[in-house]
């Protein structure tokens, strides 16, 4: 639990951070440190240079305007969980943030650090996929680009981020009057990480579902959209029978690799995807579980 030697630089601006990344071959960014420090202490990661972006104020904070929530990459899970404005604008984000790790983790860990680490068991990738979020990325020479989750997450601990790029913020649409969103997860009892997580965003007019975005994570290398479930749901009344019927299509959308370990096998996780989708939809529509 003792990190190998590294050089440490603190960047004052994003541009400086990118410059430091460019001039040091195996440099790594460090923000809250919650993903990187354990890897360093286990000596599984050995960057020669750490570029600390933790104090760049332009990367912090939550702003809500024109139907968009913008969250700086350095915003901590705690700040997200405790934001009243966010709770009203996009409650699923506050709720998901509040279920991450424990108090200490939420106090230090950042949404940007979480997303770029791309741990299949973490909650943000699934929630942000269902929300149709956008990732704002800055690169060398002040260039910027915006990527959707589907084009961002490639595999476990792998994204399309370039080595000299910094994730600056995440944007998500605010939820409309007719929209409901929920995140349900089966948490690992040791880590709190998602064994299976399901995020649903549904539009309900009258009692009919007119649109749905559903994603699952935890059991897959990158979040997977549940398009069969979405299709089965749209146009239907959101009652217990229709929700159960729609959720039963989950396996159609889980044809790729399913993760498994000694705690929860792939077969079990696959079966649980349906259950967690159901739980999320029940909660979203306040249909009683039983």
């Amino acid at each position: 639990m003792y990190a190998p030697e590294f050089e440490y630089h603190r960047a004052a601006t994003v541009a400086e951070a990118i410059q430091l990344l460019s001039s040091n071959e195996d440099a790594k960014l460090i923000a809250g440190g919650h993903s990187l420090l354990p890897l360093l202490k286990l000596r599984l990661a050995r960057p020669s240079v750490l570029v600390d972006i933790g104090r760049i104020s332009e990367l912090k904070g939550i702003t809500i305007s024109d139907g968009t929530v913008r969250i700086g990459a350095l915003t901590t899970h705690w700040e997200i969980a405790s934001s009243h404005d966010l709770e009203h604008a996009c409650g699923i984000m506050a709720e998901a943030a509040g279920g991450i790790g424990d108090t200490q983790v939420r106090n230090r860990g950042t949404i940007g650090g979480n997303v770029v680490h791309a741990d299949p068991a973490s909650d943000w990738p699934t929630v942000l996929t269902a929300l149709g979020a956008k990732f704002n990325i800055q690169g060398a020479g002040g260039s910027t680009r915006t990527v959707e989750p589907g084009d961002f997450f490639v595999g476990p601990l792998t994204t399309t981020m370039g080595e000299q790029e910094v994730l600056t913020s995440i944007e998500a649409p605010t939820l409309g009057h007719h929209q409901r969103a929920e995140y349900a997860k089966m948490a690992h009892p040791a880590s709190g990480f998602a064994v299976v997580g399901a995020a649903v965003v549904v539009t309900v007019e009258g009692d009919v579902c007119t649109a749905a975005r559903i994603a699952v994570g935890g059991l897959v290398p990158v979040p997977v959209r549940m398009t069969s479930v979405e299709t089965a749901l749209v146009g239907k009344a959101l009652n217990q029978e229709n929700i159960a019927e729609a959720a039963s299509h989950a396996s159609n959308d889980l044809q790729g690799e399913i993760l498994g370990d000694f705690f929860a096998s792939a077969e079990y996780r696959k079966a649980m995807a349906e259950v967690e989708i159901r739980h999320a939809l029940f909660h979203a529509t306040e249909v009683s579980h039983h």
Binding site: D102, H188, P189, A190, S191, F193, F262, F263
Partner: peptide, 15 residues
């Protein structure tokens, strides 16, 4: 295989 607090579940107060 259960060589860390990520894998070995020690009970927490909320459980």
């Amino acid at each position: 295989l259960t060589g860390s607090l990520l894998d070995y579940a020690v009970p927490r107060a909320h459980m």
